[in-house]
Design a protein around this nucleic acid. Structure first.
Lengths: 273, 273
DNA sequence: ATCAAAATGGAATATTTATTCCATAGCCCG
DNA sequence: CGGGCTATGGAATAAATATTCCATTTTGAT
């Protein structure tokens, strides 16, 4: 690094500006530093070089270089800026949440608080209610399958499509049945494959039909649904039940996605990824 | 120091209680420490022993004794309490992921716990970092639009598709640009419409291109992204920044979906739904 | 493909910071 | 007024932390 920035930023705002100006002009490791620092500016004051470096997933020396590029003499110099400006705002989650809710039920911020709360509740009850045995069984079935078929429509479609993305990233053969063009790919279901079906009440008839079909052909069916005794769970070889908390007519999907992701990553690593 | 307090305070509130309980029962120098600390509790996280001691006008060793009387093993121990209260535990997911891989490829239940935790952290930091003004602006822009165009690919596609579902339920005219068949519907962008674009690093070129296009045609562009200075944020009339916590290569999307949902519902009700 | 320049990671070192220890000073109770 | 106790300050040591340096790898240009 030859072109120096000889004067360090004097305020936090200046710091942010300089960071933004730098974006995309940095080599890989330093870009990682920049990204992490931009997202965690408020931790600078209370962290060590080693901690921040670990967070950004770079060696400490990379972070040092990063500080110098910004014009500081070193990390301590940069940290001083943030320590002096330190004001411990409301670090408290519940206080902040109350503030968001206060002042008008219709305001976007109040809505956001509701959805955040719903998501948190879902996640909490997921850890309590998850059936580990069923999860292990589901991982086993999918890990042993030739191709994994994914189906989920309407509300469940985001989940199914995220799974398709994750499986692709992990190079696990998976096919998303998305119903585009009203084609149905049921003849793609071949012996040795498995179906991962996702649907919540009111259950999509298309999803149930495909699950039924798969079952009749002898494929393993893994269900991700909201009711242990529901129509999809009854068809499945392994049923994962998610207690999603609704807010109004909408569900946050937090718990569903967390479970789906855990399932996918477990399957991916079981297949030797 | 006769009466020991063998267990350190576990929370900031507990700390304050103990401090209050101690008041007036201390020798002179330690009382000075207590007074100064009580008045400057929030500087503990960002100061050194020497700085605080100087502030309280006592030698450093007096401050050390003070920490021990409160039940801590030393100053560092006390400081940790305040540093963690601000940003609870460094998520340090890259390390944890490595550990998981090392320690038996991750039992599914352990993976699930990680994803749940990541989701929880994301939601918490969303409440802390959300920009209410930007959110209000975004709602205004989308509520006033003729048609809302949605774009989000790869990781962001689940979010975009969920938004499409929610808008449809609320009878808000919205069009999902999903790239099926490599068609692009850029000519569907008409004056008076707005674009809601979603992308995270590494940014999808297609999404950026569409956002650029929309901007050039004078449409309002609302961004949902992960970096305030990122390429999408720079194009947008209103940028919503989501601090999603990654776990390995995967993100839980909890915070993103919560924010998207709040946005959608606010828009829906602003349009008189 | 080859070379020069740039970037990187890790180990060695320097610096700062926390902590302990103990000789001395101050206090209280007789 | 003295003896026993506690509190105190500062110097010595230990620990954590930042910083530099350089051998190696990667990148980019030709």
């Amino acid at each position: 690094m030859d072109v120096k920035t000889p004067t360090p930023p004097a305020t936090v705002d200046e710091f942010r500006d300089r960071l933004a100006a730098l974006a995309d002009s940095l080599p890989r490791r330093l870009q990682q530093c920049a990204d992490f620092i931009a997202a965690n500016t408020d931790r600078i004051a209370v962290s060590t070089v080693a901690e921040l470096a670990a967070g950004a997933d770079v060696p400490p020396s990379a972070l040092m270089r990063f500080c110098q590029i910004l014009g500081f003499s070193g990390f301590s110099d940069m940290q001083r800026l943030f320590r002096e400006a330190w004001s411990p705002g409301p670090p408290d989650y519940s206080t902040r949440l109350r503030n968001l809710k206060a002042g008008g039920a219709g305001r976007p911020a109040a809505l956001l608080a509701e959805f955040v709360e719903a998501g948190r509740l879902s996640l909490e009850s997921l850890t309590k209610s998850v059936d580990e045995a069923a999860l292990d069984r589901a991982v086993g079935l999918l890990a042993g399958a030739g191709m994994i078929h994914l189906v989920g429509l309407r509300r469940a479609f985001p989940v199914a499509s995220y799974l398709a993305y994750v499986f692709e990233k992990m190079q696990v053969p998976a096919l998303l049945h998305d119903g585009v063009g009203k084609l149905d790919h049921r003849f793609a279901l071949r012996p040795g494959d498995a179906l991962l079906a996702i649907t919540f009440a009111p259950y999509s008839p298309e999803t149930l039909a495909l699950a039924q079909d798969a079952r009749e052909r002898g494929l393993a069916v893994v269900a991700l649904t909201d009711q242990a005794g529901g129509p999809l769970a009854r068809l499945a070889s392994a049923a994962l039940v998610v207690p999603e908390v609704d807010f109004g007519a909408f569900r946050s999907l937090s718990a569903t996605i967390a479970l789906a992701l855990a399932l996918a990553v477990a399957v991916g690593s079981a297949r030797g990824g």
